[in-house]
Amino acid sequence: MNIVVCLKQVPDSTQVKVDPKTGTLIRAGVPSILNPYDHYALERALEIKAKTGAALAVLCMGPAQAAAVIRLALALGADKGVLLSDRAFAGSDTWATSYALSQAIKKLGKTDLIICGQMAIDGDTAQTGPGIAFHLNIAQLTFCTAVDSDGKKVTVRKLIDGGHQTMETALPALVTTTMPYDYKARYPSFLGAFHAQEKPMQTWTAKDVDADPKKLGLEGSPTRVGRIFPPPARAKGEVFNGSPAELASKIVDILKKESILK
């Protein structure tokens, strides 16, 4: 069985701050990390690899420095990595990104199972996974917390409103994973990192994956960013100071005034 996991390198958005004066993002010193949803997807793929002996390739689209997340995946146990990098991809929205990734997956050869993180924390769209599934004309199973495969079919535990369901489909298929709240990412051992140095890693351009330039970058992207602006400032409410007892009775007054309490 051949498994592909798609990875994205993202700025750690928990560490991004906004300049209160200019409303712009302060990015200096913000580290780049492997998108946590993809990290979770990769660990699920490694489990299946351990069980079935599947070959595991990781694929990442991004600038040259994004190779760092591929090296991390190789150190964790992936067999080979491909960085999809080309100026032609710049300005790609989720449509063009999923097209480019699907072209790279086609070039990787026969693929049975694709696992993607549900979304990237710098975009929060959750659209690229289903897009890849369409371009490859395969089934999609989204928002899954568990993935299992025997090489012929894939079984998932998928979140639904108020619960979950177990679903199954024959391979090939694409699964997107969400994380349980208590998920702690696993990091590679020294030995893993050492062996990763010998694993194959390639960089492919748009031409290498036979991508139609009209379907890439800005030209292939239906959406445009019209305007970027800081969240609107709001009218300041009333602020109260005082002793805990005074403030508590103030809250009770407000609750009564707002008809929450009688």
Binding site: D93, T94, W95, S98, D124, T125, A126, Q127, T128, G129, P130, G131, A133, F134, H135, Q140, T142, F143, L159, I160, D161, S221, P222, T223
Partner: peptide, 23 residues
Amino acid sequence: STYVGRDLAPRVAAEIHVGLTAD
């Protein structure tokens, strides 16, 4: 933007090649 909508809309958008803006 629910489990159903976020599964359906991107698949439709990909197939008919239109834009989709989430959330």
